[in-house]
Computed example of a mutant assay.
Amino acid sequence: MTQLDLNDSQALARYDAFVRQSPNASFYQDRAWAQVKSNWTPAYFVYEREGAIVGAVSALSITANNGVPFIYCSRGPVIDPRDTELWREMIEDMTAYARSINAFFVRFDPELLEDTSLQEHYSELGFRVRSADLLLTDFIQPRCNAVLDLRGKTLEQVLMGFDAKKRYDIRVGLRHDISYTQGRDNEALRMFSEITDDMAERKGISMRDFAYFKRMMEAFPQAYVALGSYEGEVLCGALMLPYGDKMTYLYAASLEVKRSIQAPNALLWHLIEDAMNKGYTAFDLGGVFALDGSCPLYKYKKGFVKQEGITAYIGELDLVIDEEVYAGFIK
């Protein structure tokens, strides 16, 4: 294992190249994510065999509300999930790194499909596996995402895979000729942020602010804002992040006015169509926090992906360094 020197541009470029081409990678393991999470301290690790990188970890640390640091490897590590030798080496190295900064645990939550045998394997390696026995609200990242599989499908086949109400709503929006624009400039971002603020206040929920969205755009040059308008008035928007073979519908918001013309559904359809035209094989609508009608996000997103598109991941893998502090934190 090599911990990268943050001033070694060549080594960092090799890390970037490996992560961005890896089938096991997520944008959360990209170094750009640390620019978004600017209050966390980054460290990057690579594993090599015969001169080639075969594994990587982005480890961000922060002081928890108990006053003790912990490490979060969001959607990591970028390692073959069944390479036991490499996982053992990574566990040993991350334990040493955690102790060096006095962290009380390290958390991983790889974007691997739920797999009982793999969960048992990771438990045998020494992880505390947090998964289906917990509420979906008990995880840092959603354990279940609504993911639309685009592989081998025509646009018509994708549309017909939606439930009847969603198809109707999309067609209503298209009949109203909802215009669709993309942008990365401050004006597009400002419009999206204002819609987000309006929705957050209306629904009594917390949402990211303009500064956060700005960091996102600066960190990921491929990210963009999509806006849906009717008769010159912007009614809805989304912040999109393509990465690898997946398009992620990362944040979305809409105004309360003119709901009957279905601008958000028309915009979402335009975005799915655009993703297909660009060759993406998956469209991730983001997380759900219950698998029943008590979760509005589940009710909405299930209409696009059906039950089979509600993708359950393996959960969180905690590497515990200080048992006493961890027990107090996790309860």
Rank of each mutant, 00 (worst) to 15 (best):
A17Q: 07
M160E: 08
A219R: 11
V172Q: 10
Y249I: 00
V225S: 00
Q21I: 00
R82G: 02
Y224Q: 05
A96S: 07
F108R: 07
I261C: 08
A13H: 06
G67H: 02
I91Y: 02
A52S: 15
P77C: 05
Y15F: 13
D322N: 07
V172S: 02
E124Q: 10
Q3K: 12
S100G: 04
R31D: 04
G161Q: 09
D93S: 11
V68D: 14
E201L: 13
R171K: 10
L271Q: 09
I71T: 12
E273M: 00
A96F: 13
S38R: 12
G67V: 05
G183D: 02
G328D: 14
Q222W: 00
V172W: 00
A59P: 12
G293A: 03
F18W: 11
S100T: 07
L136P: 03
D83R: 11
C236N: 13
K258C: 14
E218N: 12
R190S: 02
V305Q: 05
Q3L: 11
G287S: 00
A200R: 03
D284R: 02
G232Q: 03
G126T: 13
L241D: 00
L255G: 08
V19R: 07
K278H: 01
R151S: 14
G76A: 01
K299M: 08
E323H: 14
A263P: 10
I261Y: 04
Y280W: 01
E233F: 03
L4Y: 01
Q29D: 09
D93Q: 15
A252M: 10
D245G: 05
L268N: 10
Y249G: 03
M217P: 08
S22I: 02
A17E: 15
Y230E: 08
I178D: 02
W33Q: 07
V68K: 11
N277G: 07
L267G: 13
L148F: 01
F210P: 01
L159I: 08
Q119L: 00
A266P: 13
M207S: 15
G183H: 04
R130T: 05
A266L: 08
Y251M: 05
S22L: 05
A64V: 04
L113C: 01
A13C: 06
P23W: 01
R31S: 00
G303A: 09
R20Y: 02
E50N: 14
E316S: 07
F139P: 05
G315N: 02
A146L: 03
A200S: 13
V147A: 09
